[in-house]
Design a protein around this nucleic acid. Structure first.
Lengths: 332, 332
DNA sequence: GACGATCAGGAAAGCGATTTCCAGTATGGC
DNA sequence: GCCATACTGGAAATCGCTTTCCTGATCGTC
């Protein structure tokens, strides 16, 4: 294992000089010395020991990212955006996947804290459970006290910088767009009753319908994934249009409808939320609300890294845009 | 920032004892002392400084993972499997995405080496370019010389432990299955001409056809992604069955065919490779060769972590299983 | 009851960088 | 030409933890 000291000795300079040449310092080093050190480092195949560097500097160049599930394209897209942004700033990303277990979320924050990562990004929707949210907040608080930076993608519940998609407004826009097509009898595949993202999308949708003077939609709860959509849609009684609170659920719903021989959009229209790129080739093409997921991940990195420590937490709103495709039809 | 020394002082014990209690050691500590230390740590909110620990121990608990693109569900699935396995062994995962740039792949290995990660996993297909592969191999060699462990998911080209899917055999099996349905005129959307995975799948397919005495298929090269399939399929002249060397390309092909009003499978059959879970709800359902992607990621972790350093590199073969679905039809 | 073996606790030497001083040398203004 | 000023290079302290010895005590055995 080649150390900086080996390099310094080989180049015939001091440790200090070698450090200044190789690992970025504000101090200048004369040209002759610089070249000798660089040559020595190359010859010996020196690699900085980041652990030592982190210890000495008191800060690492790693960013922690906590997501629910990388296989879910929603999180994959956010992670991708975050990693690009991190990379552009010379950071590496450590990822933890919780598979929707809030305890693991807390555990990961703790682990990332121990790693002394520069910032922690938390993506994914919170459950409206005060106790567990409080514990997460406490864990984040301890991390922030020691200089850690935190940003969140999702809801502004943690008291930290947040990239907040306009779930309510997006769902409301979608409701209005669908109503404009002539639909009046709706069903909402609403996901888990206590998941904040799901709640926001459901209420945004239903409130917009109420404002339009339309009848209340049928609400069917279920899980937040494909299976949830698949199961829930089977309980829909009579509706001309089904809104699933995310695209993956909508895909499950489409599959279930197809299995039962219900035609989309002829017999029933279907819409989702997120506009997952991987799902754009479905037939019929899914109507949805587009969220700039990769941008959201990148924004979260910027938010976490920028801003002074005492600043009040920033909330960056992100708008959704309604995209109507073949999965919905005009009525009458 | 609470240090171990603070905890030791607070508990009235030595640094050594505190270390043994809190950060796992083979040595026993008496019950009374242990409890005092644990209490002190809890009261002070102590978090191990992993950088210091890594420096002192000379090894970290982090595993590095290099993939092309997390948004590609193929890599997402592998990453997910790897992360689960890593987690089960108490490791965290640092991810780098290369977006198919071999230079970045090398750069990431270097960075991960600097991080002194316990193991590096490289997923994704290699380009048949000896120069760049040699440089990657050299970089990995330097890492391994200092005790680093490496495993690869894909081809056995790097001289390291490898999880190698049976691309040739899988493609050959698929060719035979399709031929058994009565198809004789094939086209292969072959991806990049120098990508090893693409080459293996293409040749496995064509060789099986040759063995059956069937005419040579039309080969159309292109990129390895959705766009590549979308573009390439438009050059297919006359074939009753199109094989895309991965599912994502097959999806692009399906989209292009649909746009042109070509019906699948009535006018032409389509098959892919990988069996990406996210894509299972396409219509028509895609025929493909199933690879246990998550298992492959997990296997790679095991391979990297197990085995003594002097051992010859293990190659763990992984079989693919042909899955015929609605996207292909029986001819005659 | 003595002796070697076993074991719990502590002092201190690293691990491999960064960074603060300090000293010595060039530079510039007058 | 002289003094204050800037720079460059080096010695050494430091970051927080692990681990090797070392010491003293407890234990079991003959």
């Amino acid at each position: 294992m080649v150390t900086l000291e080996d390099v310094a000795r080989h180049a015939g300079v001091s440790l200090a000089t070698a450090s200044r040449v190789l690992n970025g310092s504000s101090r200048q080093v004369g040209r002759a010395m610089r070249e000798r050190v660089e040559k020595a480092a190359a010859e010996l195949g020196y690699r900085t020991n980041v652990a030592a560097q982190t210890l000495a500097r008191g800060a690492s160049d790693v960013i922690g990212l906590v997501v629910h599930d990388l296989v879910d394209p929603y999180f994959a897209a956010i992670a991708d955006g975050a990693m690009r942004a991190a990379d552009a700033r010379g950071h590496m990303v450590m990822v933890g996947t919780t598979h929707r277990d809030p305890e693991r979320e807390i555990a990961y924050v703790s682990t990332l804290h121990a790693q002394r990562v520069r910032a922690v990004l938390i993506a994914g929707s919170r459950v409206a459970d005060a106790a567990v949210t409080d514990r997460l907040r406490a864990e984040l608080g301890r991390y922030r006290e020691t200089g850690g930076r935190v940003a969140c993608v999702g809801q502004d519940l943690l008291g930290v910088a947040t990239v907040a998609p306009a779930n309510r407004e997006g769902a409301a826009d979608l409701a209005r767009a669908l109503a404009a097509l002539g639909h009046t009898r709706f069903a909402v595949l609403a996901g888990p009753p206590h998941l904040v993202t799901a709640i926001d999308r459901r209420t945004g949708f239903t409130e917009a319908l109420a404002d339009l003077g339309l009848p209340e939609p049928q609400i069917v709860y279920g899980s937040f994934d494909r299976g949830g959509g698949h199961t829930a849609v089977q309980e829909v009684a009579d509706a001309t249009c089904v809104f699933a609170v995310n695209d993956v659920m909508a895909v499950g719903a489409l599959a279930a409808l197809r299995e039962r021989g219900v035609r989309v959009p002829d017999d029933v229209s279907v819409a989702g939320f997120d506009d997952i790129a991987t799902l754009r080739d479905l037939t019929p093409a899914l109507s949805t609300v587009r969220l700039p997921l990769a941008d959201m991940g990148a924004r979260a990195v910027e938010l976490a890294l920028s801003g002074d420590h005492g600043d009040p937490p920033v909330v960056a709103g992100v708008e959704g845009r309604v995209v109507l495709r073949d999965s919905v039809r005009r009525l009458r």
